[in-house]
Design a protein around this nucleic acid. Sequence first.
DNA 1: TATGAATGAGTATTCATTCAT
DNA 2: TATGAATGAATACTCATTCAT
Lengths: 209, 209, 209, 209
Amino acid sequence: MAIGRAERQQAVSDHKRGLILEAAREVFTAEGLEGASLRAIALRAGYTPAALYFHFASKEAIYAEVLQGSLASLRRHVDEAVAGALGAEAKLRAAAVAFFHFYAENPRDLDLGFYLFRGGMKPKGLGRERDEALNGFLEAALRPIADAAMELGAPRPEAELLMVDTFAHATGLLLLLHTGRIRMFGASAPERMQAYVDECIGRLVQEQG
Amino acid sequence: MAIGRAERQQAVSDHKRGLILEAAREVFTAEGLEGASLRAIALRAGYTPAALYFHFASKEAIYAEVLQGSLASLRRHVDEAVAGALGAEAKLRAAAVAFFHFYAENPRDLDLGFYLFRGGMKPKGLGRERDEALNGFLEAALRPIADAAMELGAPRPEAELLMVDTFAHATGLLLLLHTGRIRMFGASAPERMQAYVDECIGRLVQEQG
Amino acid sequence: MAIGRAERQQAVSDHKRGLILEAAREVFTAEGLEGASLRAIALRAGYTPAALYFHFASKEAIYAEVLQGSLASLRRHVDEAVAGALGAEAKLRAAAVAFFHFYAENPRDLDLGFYLFRGGMKPKGLGRERDEALNGFLEAALRPIADAAMELGAPRPEAELLMVDTFAHATGLLLLLHTGRIRMFGASAPERMQAYVDECIGRLVQEQG
Amino acid sequence: MAIGRAERQQAVSDHKRGLILEAAREVFTAEGLEGASLRAIALRAGYTPAALYFHFASKEAIYAEVLQGSLASLRRHVDEAVAGALGAEAKLRAAAVAFFHFYAENPRDLDLGFYLFRGGMKPKGLGRERDEALNGFLEAALRPIADAAMELGAPRPEAELLMVDTFAHATGLLLLLHTGRIRMFGASAPERMQAYVDECIGRLVQEQG
DNA sequence: TATGAATGAGTATTCATTCAT
DNA sequence: TATGAATGAATACTCATTCAT
């Protein structure tokens, strides 16, 4: 079945966008967020800086799309972990640990998230629409935690709080991990995460049992 | 009693330093850490950029002093809270909540701390000496938590882990708070902090009792 | 015959480069080498400083090209003089005098060369490649002296020493000339150069004869 | 015999000037001419930059005095060499070689001389008076060459030209030496200087003999 | 005589962005 | 769609010098 010219052009255009985003990811990973200039991204993508403006409105827009990809990856990572787990307890554990693990292994993705959700961004942030989309991705990545908690018998509000708490705890540990602060106290981030999850599950089971 | 010329000059000099640091704080607050330029700080302080170099060796030195002041405030805040609490349990609660509260009320101080602890700084940070001093301040602000836990009967290693966990949890919640993420989930950061501390204390008491 | 777009663009680009280099020459001439700032060059060329970075990688790169042009001129000057001379003796005389004459007439070109050959340049100079190229130009400009000496019967090693000696003598005289020191002693630089060359030729002829 | 207050003050002042000049020399030697800032000189001398302005009118004035000292050293060096030589021929040789040797061993002194006698200096140079003084020193350092030539029988005008020629030749060789250019041609500066002097003496002796 | 404080002009280079082609 | 060229604002920092004290 033949495709029209418009579709073909669209496909080509999408492909190019993808290549630029990939280049951006690489630059972020290699140089960190501060060191990632538009120029560097363009160069790595085989373009002139000016050319990127045909594909993205601004440097910040590129950041935003890279973040979107990052969050999509996170979500996939969590979903796969949950899918491979048997039983509600295992699922909760898997989801929480997968979330932690993703950022523990990919420090730059953590940077990305911080930078964008903070004031790092231009005046008005990313625009409402994109902001909501990003929030959706993030929530979707965390949702399995609440789901599993409900499966374990927690009422919805409590399950959601547990989700938020786990998010917070993981985030805090990740920060301590990536800044070397946790080493300073002689602790291990993954162990602390495990312990926290055990705590939560123990509490849940006890409450419901 | 009259004071000598040297003392007076020293006092004047210190005062000016203080004004510059205050200006720096303001600029950091207004523009964010990345956007804070020496020029901006100088301008706000009513100086030429070059003039700052008489009072501080570099931009990083200014930052270091501002951060040091912030951490000193934090520590004071925690110490005062602990001093006003009766009983080990109350002390633990007071210390943890005071830590959280300080940064909840002063979001920019959180920024200040992050920036140092991330790679934002020049290769080797601010120099070993200052770095260690800053770490010392931070640890001192957290230490009361471990102390109280030990008073409640926890062995030292466990007490230190509790301190780290509390630090992480508070940090995570603060991040969620300041990035608006916690609102998105319909939760309240102070409440979650309270709940976490209750949890910890409950566990401790049960274990020891 | 029509020329392509690419060629035309290249030609335009080359022309602009040339204008910038010309401006740079002028600034070097007017302000001296030390005082020549990128800003000044850009201004004289009718550009913003940043614009120069599109055409040249750095200030040193500009300097390198200006110097290269200078040495190329020198070489051309010498070659033409030699080409117009009949007989080995005349050639030697022509080459030596042309070398001297070029720098006597273009004092700033002498500056240009000195600056490179002193420590004025960044640690490693202009990069090995360019450095060798420049040395090549210089040697090529002096080579005709040795060649002529050999034609007059001098063995190669002796001819090369004569070349070096002539280079040194000319350089010394030029320095005295441009610093006004020679006037102080009531002598004339061109005359001294002539006399030196006569001396050399006399010696050579006597030896071989 | 008691000295007056004025004399004592003068002596103290002179001593301080001397210390500053010594510091300046050291900085020049260590950092080169470009790297020698007033600040650096003041620091090494144990003063504040501002303090130097009580002893010298400007940075350039310091340069000038250091140069004066350098030329005085040169003269002393040459005089001593000549004083130790027996016979006119030996004296000529000694004077020429001593001149060369002084600058071969003290490259920074050569820098100093160049910088000051060129346009490196502020608009109007050093002022007539100082300029003449410096010229006097230089001439005095070279004079023994002419004197010896006259002792060998050369008429004064010829002797003076020989002095100038030797000055030029030495200067040229020194430049080639300190810029590494002479190595590029596989020659040795001291050897070439010796050869040049031999040449001159040979010629003189032959003419007069 | 000396200092501490301050200035204003200066440095090369980088950045995201724009626009004619 | 892409480029080459250009901009203007920004960066931290250094310099010689001045001046009140």
